[in-house]
Design a protein around this nucleic acid. Structure first.
Lengths: 210, 210
DNA sequence: TCATTAATGTGAATAATCTCACATTAGCGA
DNA sequence: TCGCTAATGTGAGATTATTCACATTAATGA
């Protein structure tokens, strides 16, 4: 183990390893080699070992990795041994669908606030029991409910303004689903989820590849 | 312009440039320099020029890029000067939200088929007018309606099986929202959209960064 | 106890990607 | 017409990421 800057790609792959390992646990697999895990994750075995080597030695030479242990180690690395509170901003089609989506809960994330500007929506109770608040109350509630990460699912035109408000409210992590590049200070980490970019990439491969 | 392997990262950035340029068009900006565009996209100016250089010379030295022209050039490069037909497989929360989502239409994508296994959903008409079919009819309808790309929004446990069926039906592009790594033959291009991975990455930055 | 085996951990080689720096050139005005 | 300006296009260099290849080592069984 060294002290080195960790590649972003490594962090993303750790999530993938973790999920694959969790599936393996469900199938009662106790131990797995980097080779088998790599095949299942679609990466190179050495890549897995290198990725893990940034953080320590987790395997047993000649044997492999104990699945259960490795899941916990990766959780520890990623900071997932604690709950994280989320706020959804924008409860249109996408926001509403995501907040109901089981995967967030399954991975230890909890929505503790939801915001929209539509007076028709404000005050409504979501299936999770959470009540939608007006965006005007954003800063106050974010602090009050100890929100750590904001998910932006507003129209693109509103995304930057919401991001500014989130930063002012002290948020350091934003998951942005709006198809714009939002600008934030360095203290805030933004990740973008953009399916049209992925679709464009498929279109490119279909039209030029064959 | 050279004949070289185009980095995947370049293709993804082209989508981002295109969208930013389209926004600029709406603001009646005629011409833009790589420097200004770069700032707005959050990349290095030389990166933009390099990316474009893979495909030709699109700028005017001393002036910059004509916004309207460049949008069309990028569309041409990505293969977006024609419509692409999509099929949604899985109409739970996420699938239903995505199929209504305006961005696909805006970028020239059209849903021509939708599938689910739930008998309660089969036969229902979506707001777009599209009728939900049973997955049993997948292969037939995919061919009949000339679907080019399949979007998988089923539970993770079903994703691989659906992918297999899509490949059998002749599909060469899959956008996978299920949180598993699906395996397909080389002829088929898969892109994954996975928000929990992005959230995990934010969690990592929040817990280790500060 | 000790050789054997299998799979890790890792330095070195390779490959991919990004950035710099500047030569080049289109447009513009005198 | 000609020089000046501004921003492109691009080779070379720097950086980052991936893969190889093998020395290392834990477990196992004779």
């Amino acid at each position: 183990m060294k002290f080195a800057k960790i590649p972003m790609a490594t962090i993303n792959r750790l999530s993938i390893y973790m999920r694959t390992l969790q599936d393996l646990l469900d199938e009662d697999v106790d131990v797995i080699s980097s080779e088998r895990l790599a095949k299942q994750c679609g990466v190179n075995p050495a890549q897995i070992r290198k990725d893990l080597a940034y953080f320590g030695e987790f395997g047993v030479r000649g044997v492999g990795y104990r699945v259960n242990d490795l899941v916990n180690q990766i959780k520890e690395i990623l900071g997932l041994q604690r709950p994280w509170n989320l706020a959804m901003i924008g409860l249109g089609n996408l926001g509403s669908a995501l907040i109901r989506h089981a995967n967030f809960v399954k991975h230890g994330y909890v929505f503790t606030a939801a915001f929209d500007v539509d007076p028709q929506k404000v005050g409504k109770r979501l299936p999770t029991g959470l009540i939608i608040n007006h965006v005007d109350e954003l800063e106050e509630l974010i602090k009050e409910r100890d929100v750590h990460v904001g998910l932006i699912t507003t129209p693109a035109s509103e995304a930057q303004s919401i991001a500014n408000q989130l930063v002012l409210a002290g948020i350091n992590g934003i998951l942005n689903f709006a198809p714009v590049q939002i600008q934030v200070p360095d203290c805030c980490h933004v990740e973008n989820v953009d399916f049209t970019i992925k679709l464009d990439s498929i279109a490119y491969h279909l039209s030029s590849g064959v």
